[in-house]
Design a protein around this nucleic acid. Structure first.
Lengths: 142, 142
DNA sequence: GAGGTATTCTACGTCGTGTAGAAGTTATTC
DNA sequence: GAATAACTTCTACACGACGTAGAATACCTC
């Protein structure tokens, strides 16, 4: 219940980038974006279906009040990625062993960044960093 | 090409545990294990099919010389998990942002372990730690 | 070589995803 | 306010991954 298909990912990419730019997205946007991504001309309903599925997966929130519905990513790309990583980790007993192997494979720059985050003020690393993180707190009236 | 189904995971769990215990596994073992896991009595061919699929996915190596073929996990559970994590990470631009959020969510003990691994002799963390890691270097004659 | 065990081949049901038509709803415009 | 255009919902099909397994074939043992 996590990994995305190609089209789904394409749509999420748009929504994620738009979230950063504080922009809302309509079906048209998604259609244009997805179409541009793989050169194909998709049907409107195709993208709509994908959006609906992403909504059901709680990856996308839909503003049903506005006329052309507005779509937003529920969580950031980074948060989603972390969820995937934790999902992968969820199945192992020895999490530390996995983490050891994991950091053995990251780049020097990333290792340095991790070191900084872990050494620095612990609060900063432990804080959920709620800056600009989108939430699902909308009316959602039927 | 990564995440596993329930039966596949069940079989892999056996193989992974056996790898640690330096034990080889036959179809019988897998059948018994998978059957015990979810209480159901599976058909032999079912497990065989799963094993074949896992082999095709390069998650399992099969010793075809011995009569009841012997099955082994190609990589450890930890290595596989790391692969999944990297697969998740593969799609993002800002890896460091993800890592920041990721370590924000791990436990104190794990953070401490990471700190130890990152601060300690860098060589130890950077080394692929090849202790007991199974490889696919077998005859594999048709 | 008969009998049992192991392996391969083939196949079907289900679910997730890409894809989209048909029909219904809402807004716009004259 | 009726035609029209845009938008949304419903429904459906194809395909690949996975669970499941029967039928057929290969292999070993006595």
């Amino acid at each position: 219940m996590a990994s995305l298909g190609d089209l789904e990912r394409s749509v999420m990419d748009l929504l994620w980038d738009s979230t950063e730019a504080q922009t809302a997205n309509s079906l048209r946007d998604a259609l244009a974006h997805a179409g541009a991504e793989d050169g194909k001309e998709l049907a409107v309903t195709t993208v709509l279906t994908v959006l609906a599925r992403l909504e059901k997966k709680d990856l996308v929130a839909r503003e049903r009040d506005t006329r052309p519905h507005q779509y937003r990513a529920v969580m950031s790309r980074e948060e989603h990625t972390v969820e995937l990583m934790n999902e992968a980790l969820g199945n192992v007993m020895d999490r530390e062993a996995v983490l050891a192997r994991f950091i053995g494979g990251i780049s020097g720059g990333e290792a340095a960044a991790l070191r900084r985050l872990l050494e620095g003020p612990a609060a900063e690393a432990a804080r959920p960093l709620d800056s600009g993180t989108p939430h699902t707190t909308s009316g959602q009236s039927a």
